[in-house]
Amino acid sequence: MTLTTDADPAVDVVGVTKRYGPLVAVDDVSLRVAPGEVYGILGPNGAGKTTLLRMLFGLIRPDSGTIAVFGRSWSRDDVRTLDGVAGFIESPKFYPYLTGRQNLEGLRLLDGSGLPDRLEEVLDVVDLTGREDDKVGGYSYGMRQRLGVAASLLRSPRLLVLDEPANGLDPGGIRDMRALVKRLADGGLTVLLSSHHMDEVEEICDNVTIMNRGSVAFHGTIDDLRAMAPDPGHLLRTGDDRQAVAIGRARHPGVVVEPAPDGGLVATGSERDLSAYVADLVRAEVPLLAFTPTRTPLEALFFMLTDARPDDVRLRGKEAVR
């Protein structure tokens, strides 16, 4: 047994690679989650988020690199690596022929001894009280997701690992899930969560790693990320696009006005330049029909980091990790 100390990072991933045949699902990824932190792994479909989290849980073995959780690693400590760790990968799965309560009771058996009995408490936290004696086979998707959270909290974790926890939930469910994660984090729990929604990560995380095609594309705080964000683009619909473009070119060098792919114009520039430009359009009596942000700046950055020029972005990400 290894003693863990407070100095140990909650999660320490160093140079982890996982290949599926020719495909490199996770490519030399390093990241470190400090205790008490809410850490987001962000990336589009197929970025390697789930693969990385599965390796953390010991469900799959990395081809190279090491993963330590509170100073423990699978090679040395086997399942004790998961002491104080809970969570779920993709959508949580249960035994459909058992009730919610039976599932939780069974999982508690597999948690070993030395844990407090919190079954009623966790059922209450996820609002499943009253349905716990129904078979899980009859649960809705959202109920199963909540049972997954209950099953995780049953372990009284220090680190909660959630793989796209809001996936498949309705807007109310998403809001509740985010609120719960925030509340748990406020209580001092370390949270590592993956997502493909920038707004989710922005809302609840302190630190973020953006992954793309297996590699780290960005690594830093949400504030770092904000500082890198491009100027917001706005979709502009006018009664006279030709004149609107002309006014932009002639008098507003800080604003780029281009035809949008599906009609109208896109104006990009700082907020100040954009408002001056719009005021000018109104003065010139160009009929203004719509002026809406295309994407939030962070979203735009996310697409930039994960779609465009992945190579030079990747370089930057690696420097950030060091």
Partner: peptide
């Protein structure tokens, strides 16, 4: 989902845990 005190950042019983 209602209020929670379930997070246990540093449980005193970590050492007593058995797999």
């Amino acid at each position: 989902m209602t209020a929670s005190t379930l997070a246990s950042p540093r449980p005193s019983n970590t050492c007593a845990r058995k797999e």
